[in-house]
Amino acid sequence: MKANAQSNAASSAQPVAQPGDPLIVIGALAPDNTLPLSVLHDGLAVRVPRWIRVDQGDQLEIRLDGYTLYTLVVDAPAAIGDFVDWTVPAQSLPQEGRHEMDYLITASSGFQFGTEPTPILINRTPPIYDNIPVPPRFPEEVIANGITAQYLALHDDQVLVEVPAYLGMQAGDRLHGFWAASQALLPVPVSASDIARGWIALVIPGDLIRATGDGRHTLHYHLTSRAGFDGKHSQIATVQVSLAS
């Protein structure tokens, strides 16, 4: 397959490759090059640095797990800039698992050279393997007595709810809580400290509790994986709000 290079001056917003560097994957999440949902949907941009001596007839192959996805035959060496960019089409990306990408240069003389492979990780699995999460846990005092004006006054005008650790929990996942069925709470990014302590803090602010008024209210949540895949909504927890009494 003969193709033209997409070559540009190095951009400060993107990684800068040096001759002989491994292939760079753009938009992958550190530290393990997890491909986010946006990349899996739009395709994976990759970058190959200009090799030391570019001659007419040189051939570049970009490979995934040893299989050639793209071939560029150099027509005009002067047209090759500091790097060659190409996007792996979304339909060419594997469904799941750990994979490796690299490139191979075949010089016009027939000499071949390549680099160390660049690992990528594709994880399309939603949190908890798409099972339904357990309900959030209200404080014992709230379970026993409900949410009262006195409780809010003594607890920084908020209720702190615990979401237990879950299977496959990763830093970078996101927790989305919903009060009174549809009132979205601020999303919570999962941190390494959350994993260490075994639960995530979900805050219901006093202003929102007052806005929804007295009565029996619900709380539930769903999780979004680090790669951007949404899980199922959790089981529901209910609590009595008695601000007027």
Rank of each mutant, 00 (worst) to 15 (best):
M1Y: 12
A5G: 09
A5C: 13
A9F: 11
A10R: 08
P19G: 07
G20H: 08
L23D: 09
A30E: 14
V39K: 11
L40G: 05
H41M: 15
G43S: 05
V46D: 05
D55G: 09
G57R: 08
D58M: 04
L60W: 00
Y67N: 09
L69D: 06
A76E: 12
D85C: 03
T87P: 03
A90C: 04
A90H: 11
L93C: 09
L93S: 02
L93Y: 02
R98F: 11
T106E: 07
A107M: 14
S108T: 13
F111P: 00
E116R: 15
L121Q: 11
P127T: 11
N131D: 15
R137L: 14
F138W: 15
I143F: 03
N145Y: 15
I147G: 00
T148K: 00
Y151V: 00
H155N: 14
Q158Y: 07
V163H: 04
Y166I: 11
L167D: 14
Q170L: 14
G177D: 05
G177I: 08
F178P: 01
P187F: 01
R197H: 10
A211Y: 07
D214A: 09
L219N: 03
H220A: 04
T224R: 12
A227D: 11
S234Y: 08
V239A: 01
Q240E: 11
